[in-house]
Simulated assay, not measured.
Amino acid sequence: MHIRLSFITFSLILFLVVDMVKIPKSHPRYWSLLYREKIIEGMEKGITAKAGLIAHGRGEAFDYLIGEKTIPPAETAMRAAIAKLLLAKHPVISVNGNVAALVPKETVELAKVLNAKLEINLFYRTEERVKKIAEVLYENGADEVLGINPTKRIPGLESERGKVDENGIWKADVILVPLEDGDRTEALCRMGKFVITVDLNPLSRSARMADITIVDNIVRAYPRMIELAKEMKSLPKEDLEKIVATYDNSKVLSEVLIHIRDRLTKLAEGGIWKKEKLDI
């Protein structure tokens, strides 16, 4: 009993100490650490699943490889994505726990500028998580959130991610599914949906299956996509159609891999231990 109480006391003290830690803005990894904390906070609030922490860490690794910045292939993909979403009759933006933890305000703003619907879709779905994510979206200005009471199921998808709203993803012609599982991307493509994803891993099944893949950190991608949407809304329909028609996702993914290869080659040749060589 004494040991059990001591362990509980120690755990409580450790939690309080960790909770009190503040990241100084002078820290060279300030933004990276801040977004890690957002994911951890999301998990503690019941918004993000435990697996979401693993997914975020995997994404961080690829962000290192591309240089932690928006690269030209990502900009090309974002322009094509916005053009397609502006042309869509029923655009939908899918929201999971990591998205709600990292970019809730930007998600709502992007949906509004694109006149797109928001739908919660979770692999580790519980009614409690769904309600908490909906609350976060409403707190950040959402007028409507779908996916709370899904009535349809994506054919061939047995996981909880198969549950969709008949007025949202089920009806959508174009769907933005950031930080996505490959199985749902593939299933949506089989349904004839045009799928856009944001994925830092250019080798993932989601990245390879999607019609448009934005290889960028969502915390950089969404603000830039909002800017592009505001700029491109006034473009003629013909111009938007041309942007989409000339886009080649395989080519863009190849360009991402070439960028990573060249960047790693330069780092290796210059000596990665030299601070001045890292920013290339």
Rank of each mutant, 00 (worst) to 15 (best):
M1N: 02
M1P: 00
H2F: 14
L5M: 09
I8F: 14
T9L: 15
L12T: 13
I13Q: 07
L16C: 15
V18M: 15
V18I: 14
D19A: 11
M20N: 15
V21T: 12
V21W: 13
V21N: 02
K22A: 11
P24M: 07
P24L: 11
K25R: 11
K25T: 09
H27R: 02
R29Q: 14
L33A: 10
Y35D: 09
Y35H: 06
R36N: 12
K38S: 03
K38L: 13
I39D: 08
I40P: 00
E41I: 12
I47A: 07
I47Q: 06
A49C: 10
G52T: 01
G52K: 03
A55D: 03
G57K: 01
A61K: 07
D63A: 14
D63K: 13
L65N: 03
I66K: 01
I71T: 11
P73V: 04
R79V: 11
R79Y: 05
A80P: 03
L86V: 05
L86T: 03
L86C: 05
H90A: 04
N98V: 08
V103K: 01
K105F: 12
T107C: 01
A111W: 02
A111C: 01
A111S: 10
K112W: 00
L114M: 05
K117D: 10
E119D: 07
L122S: 07
T126R: 05
E128N: 08
R129F: 08
R129K: 13
V130Y: 10
K131F: 09
I133Y: 02
A134R: 02
A134L: 11
V136W: 00
E139L: 14
G141I: 00
G141D: 02
G141H: 01
A142I: 00
L146N: 06
I148C: 09
K152R: 07
G156L: 07
G156T: 10
L157S: 04
A172R: 01
A172Q: 02
D173I: 02
D173L: 08
V174T: 06
V174M: 03
I175N: 01
P178V: 00
P178M: 02
L179G: 04
E180Q: 08
E180R: 03
G182R: 01
D183S: 14
A187R: 04
L188G: 03
G192Y: 11
G192A: 11
V195R: 01
I196K: 03
T197E: 06
P202M: 06
S204K: 01
R205V: 07
R208V: 06
R208C: 09
D211V: 09
I214E: 04
I214M: 00
V215M: 10
V215A: 10
N217P: 02
A221M: 06
Y222F: 13
E227N: 07
K230V: 03
E231Y: 14
K233R: 08
S234A: 09
K237R: 12
K237Q: 14
D239W: 08
L240E: 08
I243F: 15
I243L: 15
I243S: 12
Y247M: 06
L253M: 06
E255M: 10
V256L: 04
L257K: 08
L257M: 14
I258L: 13
H259L: 08
R263L: 09
L267Y: 13
G271C: 07
W273T: 11
E276F: 10
L278W: 06
L278A: 04
L278Q: 11
D279L: 13
